[in-house]
Design a protein around this nucleic acid. Structure first.
Length: 112
DNA sequence: GACCTGACGCCCC
DNA sequence: AGGGGCGCCAGGT
């Protein structure tokens, strides 16, 4: 059937809608989509590494605000650099005041 | 076809 | 407060 639209696409959709200067977590996306597993979100974003270059995967971090996916980018510092460029303070691959920048997919309704 | 690992997260000690 | 273990789903070996 039309399995072209898997939860992958939903993850990309959400990620694409993360406002600049804001970040969300794997768990938040998984919870919002009812996936039941945050790992699946990471897996989906792993596929981005190649195509879907318009998906700002650097804005998705773990629940501690750590850039756990930095090693999966061409440059290990790409994530930190992009986030800094967007006005987010990153120290030692971790977002300071993470709660301040946190954006929940629930807020999708606001921007749509 | 079974086993292991992985861009995570929660519970328990 | 910090560290370790188990569960979740999918894909690769």
């Amino acid at each position: 059937m039309n399995k072209n639209y898997s939860y992958f696409d939903l993850v990309y959709e959400i990620t694409r809608n993360i406002p600049s200067g804001r970040v969300t977590t794997y768990g938040a996306i998984a919870d919002y989509l009812g996936l039941g597993s945050a790992r699946m979100v990471g897996w989906a974003l792993n596929q981005v590494h190649g195509s879907y270059t318009d998906v700002p995967a650097h804005r998705v971090v773990n629940r501690l605000g750590e850039l756990s996916g930095r090693n999966h980018f061409p440059d290990p510092d790409y994530m930190a650099n992009m986030l800094k460029q967007e006005g987010i303070e990153v120290v030692d691959n971790k977002i300071t005041e993470f709660k301040k920048y946190f954006w929940h997919p629930e807020n999708l309704d606001s921007i749509l």
